[in-house]
Design a protein around this nucleic acid. Structure first.
Length: 243
DNA sequence: GCGACAG
DNA sequence: ATCTTGTCGC
């Protein structure tokens, strides 16, 4: 797939902040009327300590059955440090490489991180949505900024995430008895629709199936590129080779 | 100035 | 995010 030419990725943290403030004006925080989603993809990356190599991937699922229909991964130097608030500058380059290998674009993208629930309202889901030109949602495991009140224990319970007087996202309980996930729109998306999709994509576990599949794939890519022939071969052969 | 801080 | 074994609970 192709992607938008937004800006240079070889930037300093200071320049990255300026870019976020500029890119924010291009965001469309409204879901396209009559949005039809038949293919939804999850994106994620993994890396190793003391190494700048990153492994990124997209796993596309059938929106109805949530069964994987295609996937693509890539390996590349991350080239940007992890700085709270600038995650997209570290993760999007390698994801862009994987994106270009996809045969067709999914109708919706789910990122492992924030959308508008970000200090400058430009989390990785917003940046990624603009880069790939697809409706996107941010679904994070923890908060970056903002706070929320208590929410019910039942699956589907929600609580608004507020920051500086604005509602920037929603804490969503995707499963009873587990901590909530933090949902916010990325691009071409609104909060209610984002919450609705995250719940639909998380019928059984805390995190969306999209995120779970992408997370599993990038870890397989990292391990097989690194060495260790473990992980899934173990499941088929048990410990047959062990003494 | 101090503490917080997606992955 | 990653480093790591066992362990508590449904």
């Amino acid at each position: 797939m192709d992607l938008k030419l937004l800006h240079d990725w070889n930037v300093t943290p200071q320049e990255a902040v300026a870019l976020q403030n500029s890119l924010r004006e291009r965001l469309v925080l409204r879901a396209p009327s009559g949005l039809r989603v038949s293919r939804v993809a999850g994106a994620d990356i993994s890396t190793e300590r003391g190494n700048d190599t990153g492994y990124g991937a997209f796993v596309v699922l059938d929106a109805e059955s949530l069964a994987p229909v295609s996937q693509q991964g890539a390996e590349a130097p991350l080239g940007f440090p992890y700085v709270p608030g600038l995650l997209s500058f570290r993760e999007l380059p390698v994801l862009a490489a994987a994106w270009m290998r996809l045969e067709s674009a999914p109708d919706l993208l789910v990122f492992d991180g924030q959308g508008t629930a970000h200090p400058r309202r430009m989390g990785i889901a917003c940046h990624g949505g603009l880069l790939f030109g697809v409706p996107s949602i941010g679904c994070a495991k923890s908060l970056l900024v903002g706070s929320h009140g208590p929410l019910g224990e039942e699956r589907g319970a929600t609580a608004e995430i507020r920051h500086r007087g604005e509602v920037i996202g929603m804490a969503v309980r995707t499963r009873r008895g587990v901590s909530p996930v933090y949902v916010s729109p990325g691009h071409l998306m609104d909060l209610p629709t984002a919450v609705e999709w995250v719940l639909r994509l998380s019928p059984r576990y805390r995190e969306p199936e999209t995120t779970r599949h992408a997370h599993r794939l990038v870890n397989v890519l990292r391990r097989q590129a690194h060495g260790g022939l473990q992980g899934d071969v173990c499941g088929q052969w048990g410990r047959a080779w062990s003494p």
